[in-house]
Design a protein around this nucleic acid. Structure first.
Lengths: 187, 187
DNA sequence: AGCACTCGTGCGCTATAACGTACAAGCCCT
DNA sequence: AGGGCTTGTACGTTATAGCGCACGAGTGCT
């Protein structure tokens, strides 16, 4: 990891160059003076959060792009044996196995879900920014997404916004097993 | 999303209370004056990034905890049909299917990998903070992790640090198929 | 060559961050 | 009751962020 002020300087200059903006143009877009932007880009000044907020807004980015990601340090290995995963059915017919529990460092959790024939589940919208990723392992299923049922079969992968009403159903004659990775909000 | 200064104020106060620290104690741990910390917590001052860096360090957190996550807005649905996924073998015997390509917003990519019998693959360390998540779909395999081969069978899930040398092998008589989710760095 | 314009940087000034110190309030102990 | 200590906030001072303006360098056009 480098000095955070240097990282910020570098990212800001790269962003501005990607947009093809002069310091003058960037000043107009962000509401921060071009002298100040120049100082920040040269690493000569440490801006306040308020100023960085204005800069990020002008570039239509989150402040977090200006912060160097921290490597996850010393996280342990986790091995979850299949014997202990699938013995805890949810209080309905759908089987749920937690493959990877939520960990704030990664921002997601992952389950293996088994829908018996005829099963249907509707879910309310999750919090803004939540995205689900499904991969069908066996069988076929349908996913309600954006008011429409999408058909998925073994091997298909689907990513969709889960911050609106959605659902799953199995209208086939056999169990369908799929992985569901739920990611919360953006980096 | 609320005012970033109010979000920062709230998070800082919560963190300090979780640690059970007084302003005085927090000043000693962070190297930032207690008057200043008090002002930040009351939302009366917008600290510079340099000051925020000292505060984050004192609490042993990344700066990003002080920044409100941005909901992913308007991301499209992606459906990848199995027919188009597994027809592109890598230039060796291992089959690779990209289920979810890397997307900076989520910070990960996910593959389905198929190792034929006898196949062995050793990988060099990836960049710091990279973590792999494996789930075995069919067959059995071994993963070299931290200098040791771990045995995995159908249904097992494993998360491990991939920023050191690692590897996979299939010493059984049948193909092994598994999912590999690779997460890059922490939020 | 000369002029106009853009670009990034330097400088002087103002506003605010950041600090050290003092103070009020509350609590605990004698 | 009184003293000592902790806690958070107020205040005066210093350091720096942040701005407006000026300047030099480079480019393009006539």
């Amino acid at each position: 990891m480098q000095d955070p002020q240097q990282y910020l300087a570098q990212v800001l200059r790269q962003l501005r160059q990607q947009q093809g903006w002069s310091l003058d143009r960037a000043a107009r877009e962000t509401g921060v003076s071009k002298a100040m932007l120049g100082q920040i880009e040269r690493g000569e000044s440490s801006p306040t959060m308020a100023t960085l907020w204005k800069i990020a807004g002008g570039f239509q980015r989150s402040i977090s792009v200006f912060i160097e990601p921290t490597p996850v340090e010393n996280r342990g290995t986790i091995l979850r044996s299949s014997d202990e995963l699938r013995q805890q059915p949810a209080d309905d017919e759908m089987l749920v196995a937690t493959l990877f529990p939520f960990d704030k460092r990664f921002g997601f959790e992952m389950f293996e879900l088994t829908l018996p024939p005829g099963y249907e589940r509707l879910s309310a919208a999750h919090e803004p920014g939540t995205t689900e990723h499904l991969v069908v392992l066996t069988g076929a299923m349908e996913v309600l997404e954006n008011g429409e049922w999408l058909a998925l079969k073994k091997g298909d992968a689907l990513r969709f916004a889960a911050d609106r009403d959605h659902g799953y159903r199995n209208q086939s004659a056999e169990d369908v097993v799929f992985h569901n990775l739920i990611s919360y909000s953006a980096r």
